[in-house]
C-alpha cells in the first residue's frame, strides 16, 4: 500500500476525519469504555475459567489443608470403623470366649451391665463362681451405680471393670487365661463329645460301668463325686459315657458326662472331690481288670 505523508493541513484533516480512522478510534474507545463499564472481558475470562475448573489441579494452600483434612478424616474413620466393628462383634457375643476372640490384644469393649449379666449367667455355675460371686453382683446391682462394664483383652486373660456412670471402677475382675480355657472347654463340651476333650482321652468309661462303680462307693462319699446329681437328672437324653480328667485343680477333678439326645451328643462337665474321684477310679480300674480277666478265662476255657 502506497503511503505518503500529507503535505498540508487540509489533507491531514481529511485523512484524520475520514470514516476509517474514526471508526477505528470509536471502536477502540467503545471497547475500552464498555470494558470499564461492563467488565465483559473479566466475564468472558471468568466464564472460560469456570468451564475449565474441574480439569485443573487441586493445588494451593487451601487444597493442601483439604488433603490433610481428608487424610485425617480417613484415619479417624478407620479408627472408628475398627473400633465399631470390634464393639459390634463383642456386643453380639454370647460368651466370654467369643468376646476374647473378637478383641485384639490390648483392646477393650464397653458393654452394658445387662449384657455382662447375660454373659455371666451363661457360665457354668462353678466357673461363674470363680469369676465373681453372684452375691457380689447382686450387691452391685441393688446399689444401682453399676451401669457399664468394660472388658479388656490382656496378656494374662480378660480384665473386667464394672463401672458407674462416671467411668469409675466399682469392682474389677480378672478371668485368667486358664479359667478362660476352662470356660472354652465347657462351651466346646456343650456341643461335642468326650473325644473332643483331650484331658479325658485316657479315662473314658461306659456309663453303665461308671455308675456301677459309683454305687460301690460308700453312700456318704457319693456326694463328693457328684455334688449336684440333679443337674444330670434335669437334662434331656441318656448318659452314654463318662470321662475323668487327668488334671486335678484345687482339690477337684473334672468329670465329663457324654449325653446322647437323639442324633446329638453333648458333654456336661461337673467337678468331684479329688480323693473321691481317685477312689472311684480305682474301683473302675478294678472292674476293668475283672472284666478283662473274666473275658480272658472265657477265652482260655474255650481253648481247653
Amino acid at each position: 500500500m502506497d503511503f505518503s505523508e500529507p503535505q498540508n493541513f487540509r489533507e491531514w484533516a481529511s485523512r484524520v476525519f475520514a470514516l476509517r480512522p474514526l471508526v477505528l478510534i470509536l471502536l477502540i474507545f467503545g471497547i475500552v469504555i464498555s470494558e470499564l463499564r461492563f467488565d465483559w472481558a473479566e466475564q468472558v475470562l471468568g466464564a472460560y475459567l469456570v468451564t475449565t475448573n474441574t480439569q485443573r489441579p487441586e493445588s494451593g494452600s487451601i487444597w493442601e489443608v483439604g488433603h490433610r483434612t481428608v487424610t485425617a478424616r480417613q484415619t479417624l474413620e478407620q479408627l472408628i470403623t475398627d473400633r465399631q466393628s470390634t464393639q459390634r462383634e463383642a456386643r453380639g457375643a454370647d460368651t466370654f470366649t467369643q468376646i476374647v476372640s473378637s478383641l485384639p490384644p490390648g483392646q477393650g469393649v464397653m458393654l452394658s451391665s445387662e449384657h455382662f449379666r447375660r454373659l455371666y449367667l451363661a457360665l457354668p455355675g462353678t466357673l461363674a463362681q470363680e469369676v465373681v460371686a453372684p452375691f457380689e453382683l447382686l450387691r452391685l446391682l441393688s446399689d444401682g451405680r453399676w451401669v457399664r462394664t468394660y472388658l479388656e483383652n490382656e496378656d494374662y486373660g480378660l480384665k473386667i471393670y464394672l463401672l458407674n456412670n462416671e467411668n469409675r471402677v466399682l469392682r474389677d475382675l480378672r478371668i485368667p487365661t486358664q479359667l478362660l480355657y476352662q470356660i472354652e472347654r465347657v462351651e466346646l463340651a456343650l456341643q461335642g463329645t468326650l473325644d473332643d476333650l483331650p484331658t479325658f482321652e485316657s479315662r473314658v468309661y461306659p456309663a453303665e460301668r461308671f455308675f456301677r462303680a459309683l454305687n460301690s462307693l460308700p453312700h456318704e462319699d457319693l456326694g463328693s463325686v457328684i455334688s449336684q446329681p440333679e443337674k444330670l437328672l434335669g437334662i434331656d437324653g441318656r448318659i452314654v459315657r463318662v470321662g475323668i480328667s487327668d488334671e486335678a485343680v484345687s482339690g477337684y477333678i473334672e468329670l465329663g458326662f457324654e449325653i446322647e439326645d437323639g442324633t446329638r451328643r453333648k458333654v456336661i462337665l461337673l467337678k468331684g472331690r479329688e480323693w473321691a474321684v481317685w477312689m472311684l477310679r480305682s474301683y473302675l480300674e478294678e472292674m476293668g481288670q475283672d472284666t478283662q480277666k473274666s473275658s480272658g478265662s472265657e477265652e482260655i476255657g474255650d481253648q481247653g
Partner: peptide, 12 residues
C-alpha cells in the same frame, strides 16, 4: 496417639 494430621485437621 493419633498423629498431627488428625489433631490439626480431624476435628476432635
Amino acid at each position: 496417639r493419633y498423629g498431627p494430621e488428625v489433631v490439626y485437621h480431624g476435628g476432635l
